[in-house]
Design a protein around this nucleic acid. Structure first.
Lengths: 230, 230
DNA sequence: CACGACCTACCGACCGGTAGGTAGCAGTGT
DNA sequence: ACACTGCTACCTACCGGTCGGTAGGTCGTG
């Protein structure tokens, strides 16, 4: 969406094909473990031919990650950010994000998750800033949900990173031919973090809605953030 | 504990110092991004000197990971596995595991988390089997806790990997000088997944204990596992 | 004939790994 | 007392191969 790869805007399809091919390889073998030779060959080119399209290896990774962030924002964030109810927003967001990870459509997203410390300098800062926007989005939803008594109160930063951990860790263990489908995982995790309100809750029976709102024994005021990454 | 590095058992301290030095570097720069030259230099040796102690680069990584699993089992598993109450077991386990990740004592553990797909063949299978023991441990605790009505019922595999995701993802974002301490994070996450029983619960008031036990709308029977990794 | 797309051929540096030598030390036979 | 042996713990010097990257040429198309 944003086209932050730093290239001429209309070079278009061929360039994106290179990004996707490179992403496939880097996702399999890791960034350092993938040579430009291999990437070029997978693009049916020589190394010099590949370098006609890109500046260097690190900029290639940067472009892949930006492309991945574009895909994420298009397929997750943009589809849920207008949901008014903060808990429904979080539920939908979790579902979309889990499916983005489990279905292998975007190797670029997996690379963002795995190579979280590979980029350096400005490129690293730029990607981290795009990630932080997602963390901020989650923190705000958690803050609203806590405040409105829709979930058991939790520090928004802890909530956001707990959410992210559950969802994003999936890339490390999920196998599409396993016994659990991605929908089952999504259902289960949504239900763990955001259980539906029962009839008792909506009717306001004693000890029901209040149950999930019991203040923590201590440190309920911790609102700091160590965020930077996601 | 297990000494599975494949070396003579009494070589001892020097060898472990090499593992720790190598782990520090690999944790910082990644496995593929760290050269044997650099590792040797950090050990105040030449490369050939280093190769006197190890067989090759991959076996070095394997030994580091086994050492990390030893440390994990010693500092987490062994301290909680005898707790009778499954929820208390999970709570304590989560706390210990979070602190193992946040305090930088064992770079070996971080390497296990990050380089989850670097090893191949038998070495990979061996480490994966050690990880799977932990997943099994968590699944059993989740199964017991669900069955005894101590937590909202959840598929044990989903529960285990949700637990692991929250806990292990921390290595990607936690900074010790951030505004949240590791204890605050541990408290918050334990409270999210395993909220304490209230007085209302123990007294058996209507709509209280039952609240967290509402059966899921569907798919409550999914018990498969895609597990392999942690 | 200008230009983008791609090539061959090459660069210096570095990769993981090894052959073969040496310095120091414990044990031992005389 | 001392030479000799065997061993560990390293070293220097080097291997073939690959790394990221580039200079400069070719060729089809507008």
């Amino acid at each position: 969406m944003t086209n932050t790869g730093g290239r001429k805007p209309d070079e278009g399809e061929r360039y994106r094909a290179i990004l996707e091919t490179a992403a496939r390889l880097i996702c399999d073998r890791g960034y350092e473990g993938t040579s430009m030779q291999e990437i070029a060959a997978a693009c049916r080119m020589t190394k010099a031919g590949l370098y006609h399209h890109i500046q260097n290896k690190e900029q290639l990774l940067f472009a892949i990650m930006n492309y991945g962030m574009d895909l994420f924002e298009e397929q997750v964030l943009s589809r849920v950010q207008d949901i008014a109810n903060p808990v429904e927003r979080l539920r939908a967001c979790m579902r979309h994000n889990i499916l983005l990870v489990t279905r292998g459509w975007s190797k670029e997203v997996i690379i963002i998750l795995h190579e979280h410390a590979t980029l350096t300098g400005e490129a690293r800062a730029f990607i981290d800033a795009r990630k932080k926007k997602y963390v901020d989005f989650l923190e705000e939803a958690y803050g609203q949900a806590s405040q409105q008594g829709l979930i058991r109160p939790v520090d928004p930063t802890v909530g956001a990173f707990a959410f992210l951990g559950m969802v994003l860790w999936i890339y490390k263990w999920f196998k599409p031919d396993g016994r659990l489908t991605d929908e089952q995982i999504a259902d289960g995790m949504v239900d763990m973090l955001f259980p539906p309100l029962t009839a008792a809750d909506t009717a306001g029976l004693p000890g029901s809605a209040a149950l999930r709102m019991v203040p923590r024994t201590a440190a309920a005021t911790a609102t700091g953030t160590d965020s930077e990454d996601a």
